Computed example of a mutant assay.
Amino acid sequence: MEPVSNIQKWALITGALGGIGRALVSEFVEHGYQVIATDLNNSCKTLNNVHFLQLDLDAFVLDEAYAAEFYSKISRITAHKGISTLINNAAVQILADCSQLSRKQWQTSLNVNLTAPFFLSQLFTDDLVANKGAIVNISSIHATLTKKEFVAYATTKAALSSMTRNMVLDLGNRVRINAIEPAAIATDMLKAGFDGKEEQYKRLEMFHPLGRIGTPKEVAKLACFLSSDDAGFVQGACISASGGIHGCLSDPL
């Protein structure tokens, strides 16, 4: 897909300072978008065609006035043109055994990973309809395949993928909505978790049929495609980006 020349299309990307988030911002800018990049953490960086906003998704979910003020900020930034793409990328990954998970941990997981994407989609529906826009939810392989202590994260991602499919029935042909379900992606956070564990990292790579894990840019390129007119007939899809690992049986024998 060739970069577009019209820079008046606006993309709103949450979780923009993480590994996948940074790749999303760069990819959409490369394809001619003006990007509103949000994150819980503030950023002092200034980039061409990128507007940074701090966004607390917990507060966004719980405080309607906070959400309304956020919408007003976006409206002012876009000169009331509104966004044409919403990328729900932000997520928290709280790991705990189901017998130990606290109510706060459970509710935070739901707020950030599921409820915020829903209400962001609802808040910007009119803008997206007016701009013939698209929503891309960054879900996870954990929506269908998970492991111990991932119950909160996996449950929210399964619900996010389900929400993606179900919202289609209400949105119809007005707004396209799709999800990406990545497996292991080579973010700084993932690499830091394998610091000093090079052999384990190599085993993780080789367990993927492609012989490697994914890159943030590959996820970003797929999100950019799903936001484009080239993906015009793709609606309500939850697309695996797993390097084939979603087909692997983990068999001890």
Rank of each mutant, 00 (worst) to 15 (best):
E199I: 03
P252D: 05
S140W: 09
P182V: 02
D188S: 05
V4Q: 12
D39R: 02
D230I: 03
F207Q: 09
S121Q: 10
N49A: 08
T14S: 04
I7S: 13
K45W: 01
S84C: 14
T187G: 12
S43Q: 06
M1Y: 10
V129M: 15
T215N: 01
D58Q: 11
N49I: 01
W106C: 01
T144P: 08
A143W: 15
A130H: 14
S26N: 12
E218S: 12
L222D: 05
V25A: 04
K157D: 05
A231D: 02
L210E: 04
G214D: 01
L114W: 07
S84I: 08
I138V: 14
D127K: 09
L204P: 00
A241S: 14
I185A: 09
L53G: 03
A65I: 08
L249M: 14
K217G: 04
H142C: 08
E30Q: 03
P252N: 05
E30P: 01
A223P: 05
V92M: 12
D170E: 13
N111R: 14
I141Y: 04
I180E: 09
L123S: 11
G193W: 07
G15M: 00
Q100G: 06
R103V: 11
K157R: 05
I7M: 12
L55H: 02
M206K: 13
S161H: 04
I180Q: 12
V136F: 15
A223M: 02
A96E: 13
E2H: 07
H246E: 13
W10C: 06
A96G: 10
E2A: 11
Q100R: 11
T125K: 14
T156S: 06
S228G: 04
E205I: 06
C224W: 01
D230C: 11
F233D: 02
R176P: 15
R22S: 03
